[in-house]
Structures are given as C-alpha cells and as structure tokens.
Design a protein around this nucleic acid. Sequence first.
DNA 1: AATGGTCTCAACCGCGAGAAC
DNA 2: CGTTCTCGCGGTTGAGACCAT
Length: 276
Amino acid sequence: MGRSPCCEKDHTNKGAWTKEEDERLINYIKLHGEGCWRSLPKAAGLLRCGKSCRLRWINYLRPDLKRGNFTEEEDEIIINLHSLLGNKWSLIAARLPGRTDNEIKNYWNTHIKRKLYSRGIDPQTHRPLNSLITTCTSNKRGNNSSSNNTQITTAANDNMGFQINMQTTKKKQEVADLLVMSDINNNENEDSNSSSGVTTEEIYPELNLELSIGLPAQHGTISSSCIKVYDKCLKQNGKTGVCLCCCLGFQKSEACSCKSMVMAPRITTAPENNLC
DNA sequence: AATGGTCTCAACCGCGAGAAC
DNA sequence: CGTTCTCGCGGTTGAGACCAT
C-alpha cells in the first residue's frame, strides 16, 4: 500500500542551514548528482528532510546561480513575463538563467510591485490603477445575505498618491485590517443601535461586506507595508482597488484629502490622530 | 546609544498532480 | 483501482539587517 514516508520529521533540523550542512549537501550532489531527494539526507549524513535539501540546493547552493542585484533588463523581462504568465514563478525563472523562482518571487514582492505602483500600474492586472473602480467583496462566509450587505464606494484619487508613510508594524497592520472591519461593524451597529461589546458576527452571522474603493494613481513613494496591506485586502476581498487611507480608517472623513472622491458612506469613524 | 519600526529574503508550509505500490 | 508518497510550486513567515527618531 503506497510508499513509506519521505523522512522522519521528529529527527530533522529546521531553520537556517549551517556551513557544515551546506558543505555536506554540496559534496554529496557533486558526487551523486541531483535527485532522489528522499534518500539524499540520510545518504549525505544530513538531519534534514529531502524537501529542505532540495530547496537549499535549488535556491542557494546551485553553482549556476547568478548572485547580485537584478538588472533593469531583468526587471522588464520579469514584468513582461508576469503580465503573460501571472504568478507562475517557476516559468518566469525558467526564462531567466541563474535566477530562482523563490528569488524572483521575493524580488517581485519587495521591488517590482512598488515600481509598478509608482508607475500607476496595478501589479496584478498590469492595468492603470486610476482606471480601477472596483469592488472588494468580503465574502468569507460564502453567503450573500443582501439585506445585511454594507457597500462603500470611493473613486480613484489622483492627488493623494501613495505617499502614506505608514509607520506600522505587522501587528499594527493586523489591527488596521481589523479596524476596517470594526469600522464597518460600527457603522452597522450604529444603524441598528447596537450596544458595544457585541460583535458583528454575533449580530449578522451571515454578514457579507462589500467594498468598492479606488486606488490613487499618482506616482509616489510606496512602502512595502502599504503594498502588504493592499495585497491582503485584495486577497481577502478578491478584487482590486483600495484607498489605504480610507481603507484603514486613518483619517477623519472631513480631513481626508480624498474626501472629494468619496461617493458613498465612508468606511470609518476615524481615530483622533490623523495619519493621512 | 538606545529603541522601535521597516525591509529583505531564506526557509517553511500546504496543496495539487502524478507516480509508486 | 484506491491509497499513499514524492516532487514541485506558490504563498507565507520570521530572523536579522537596516533605518529613523
């Protein structure tokens, strides 16, 4: 019946590789070649699972890897290939000798996305950001209970750009994400005169939250935090288009520079300090 | 100099497809 | 033919480097 497990996970190391482990892996592959990742760790005297060995070799130890910064030419190749292939990093890597899928993926997330945003291009769709007036649909519960929907719409803002220097930690980002939801919840609760301490989930077990928000298109400095929050929202809601200021509820509606673009009820009852 | 926030990237995790039994 | 495993992939995480105050 089937095959035996690839490794005994109780007896394997995790985390960063040591020099000694690297040397063992390199020496073994020099002698025996790549492949047979399942049996490799034991044969090479490594307390690692085969998967980990494969990853270490492919992403770091392979002799044909090109080290150093990506060139402008490589940037453009990646952008073009991504527009054709999407997040098929292995396919993109196959067309860039000496680069790994992991490396390209990291580079995309940390550099190229920002570059595209600053050009006013959405990195997912490769279309101009200011043409996007879209719908974010939070439908985690998978049920469209139309009477309980909240719909909020803003348009793209050409003036604000992405010059939001969000001094947020990862935890703050999570809080910020929750803020979005809780602000919506607050609006819902205000509407229904609900008292505090009761979650929206309790009030609306089948709640579907639908947002329609636009992204600014002006060139500017974008922190990776902004991009992460944007991506997270994008992922959770399935579609494109978030004004972060509004999304995070970081400003009062009357103080927000994109107020003229707000077309529908705002997301938030904002905190006192205006970070916009 | 100390502290706290942000960025980068190596490594891990989980999943799907196909192979082995 | 069904079950289990391997391989490879894309997404995510977290440690440490770097930067700002």
